[in-house]
Write a protein that binds this DNA or RNA. Structure first.
Lengths: 207, 184
DNA sequence: GCTTTAAAAAGTAAGCT
DNA sequence: AGCTTACTTTGGAAAGC
């Protein structure tokens, strides 16, 4: 029947239109966040899988796009915080987080929580810190994880504290305020984390 | 090895029905400390001091009681609400059937925990752990049907159960699981 | 889905002195 | 630098938008 044929065309048009919108939205956000093409592609794959499993029901395309991008960044080891993702989305952080948990669960994306170490390269670059500082910060984070000093703590706060300590130990000191700015946490959080790390890891920080 | 998980009931949510077609405006007029903002929420809020709790009274006569530290306290609160509403000349059911809807309890495993290891041990597909958003690991059990929030300190919160025993069984089950995984 | 209630856990945040 | 207050998460019922 002709009706049936036309209906299919309508549906496929809408589907394609939505996909085109989603992909353009994905590109717009990825560019704004300065993400590499590989991450965009990973996010696109996640988005398509979500579509195939009808995980969009009751959710906005933008929300799923944002969640797919968030997941892709983590999977690629170049995490962006939900706040950073939300900065370039019409959807708020809370909704992106919920959507992320939902699609991660439904698609079986087994992602461990982000390690503070994954934030080190980006934060250090933004602070103009050397590879030596990055190495030291990651070393501190690894020890902190072994000593179980990171359970329940925000990854960015731990990363910020480790970088703050490393910058001092390497003679490239950055202020708590500068580190807090790039890490997106408060100076109070850096203070709390660095005091704990310095004390429990036995690091002497002479100012 | 008798463990003391320090299980404590922190909140009991119960529902019941104390009457029909209750005039909430009258209650709001007669009881000065009652909160009633029908534009914002259809229920009227009445708070009791002993036991300290809050009751939501609806026009239908249905009542939701929250904040009690025990099932018995929840029943005591309902009796107080019946007495208060009844004293206003409003027809009430003297001894309504009280149904516990949810019990929130806290407990302590007594040791610090490595949440990353626990997430892997219990299975990433059975657990939610996003320290960027919340410090606790969320573990949903099918039996008993409750949700447990596990923290790095070893403390936890059990919610969603209908009886104190649901919370007790959940804590013991988790302790056993973690121990068999060598994470406790 | 939201609105309102209560309470705990631990981390982070914001305002004030 | 503290202290206080407050928001994040979990669960459930109620009546209505």
């Amino acid at each position: 029947r002709l009706r049936k044929w036309q209906r299919r065309i309508r549906i496929s048009n809408a589907t394609e239109r939505n996909l085109a919108f989603a992909l353009s939205e994905l590109d717009r956000m990825a560019s704004a966040l300065g993400l590499p093409k590989s991450v965009r592609e990973t996010a696109a794959v996640i988005y398509r899988k979500a579509i195939e499993k009808n995980l969009i029901r009751g959710r906005s395309i933008e929300g799923v796009v944002a969640a797919a991008l968030y997941a892709a960044c983590r999977q690629a080891g170049v995490p962006r915080t939900l706040d950073e993702i939300a900065q370039y989305s019409r959807v708020d952080r809370k909704e992106i987080g919920r959507t992320y948990r939902f699609i991660a669960r439904e698609l079986g994306l087994k992602l461990m929580p982000t390690s503070p170490a994954d934030y080190v390269p980006r934060f250090c670059a933004a602070l103009g810190l050397s590879g030596e500082v990055q190495r030291k910060a990651i070393e501190i984070i690894k020890k902190a994880e072994e000593r179980e000093l990171t359970s329940g703590r925000g990854p960015t706060g731990v990363a910020a504290a480790a970088i703050y300590i490393a910058s001092i130990l390497c003679g490239e000191r950055r202020t708590q305020r500068e580190v807090a700015e790039v890490a997106g946490v408060t100076e109070v959080t850096i203070r709390n984390r660095y005091k704990e790390l310095a004390e429990k890891l036995g690091i002497d920080i002479i100012l | 090895m008798t463990r003391d998980f320090k299980i404590k009931i922190e909140n009991v949510v119960a529902s019941t029905q104390i009457g029909e077609n209750i005039d909430l405006n009258k209650i709001a007029r007669e009881i000065p400390d009652a909160d009633y903002k029908p534009k914002q929420f259809p229920g009227l809020v009445l708070r009791t001091k002993e036991p300290k709790a809050a009751a939501l009274i609806f026009r239908s006569g249905k009542v939701v009681c929250t904040g009690s530290k025990s099932v018995e306290d929840a029943r005591r609160v309902v009796k107080q609400i019946v007495k208060i509403v009844g004293s206003l000349g409003i027809p009430v059911i003297e001894e309504p059937e009280v149904k516990v809807q949810n019990i929130v309890a806290s407990a302590d495993l007594g040791t610090d925990l490595n949440l990353n290891a626990i997430a892997i041990g219990l299975g990433l597909e059975n657990v939610e752990y996003e320290p960027e958003q919340f410090p606790g690991l969320v573990y949903r059990l099918r039996d008993p049907r409750v949700v447990v929030l596990i923290f790095g300190s070893g403390k936890m919160v059990v919610t969603g159960g209908k009886t104190p025993d649901d919370a007790r069984r959940a804590v013991e089950k988790i302790a056993e699981e973690l121990e068999s995984l060598g994470l406790l």
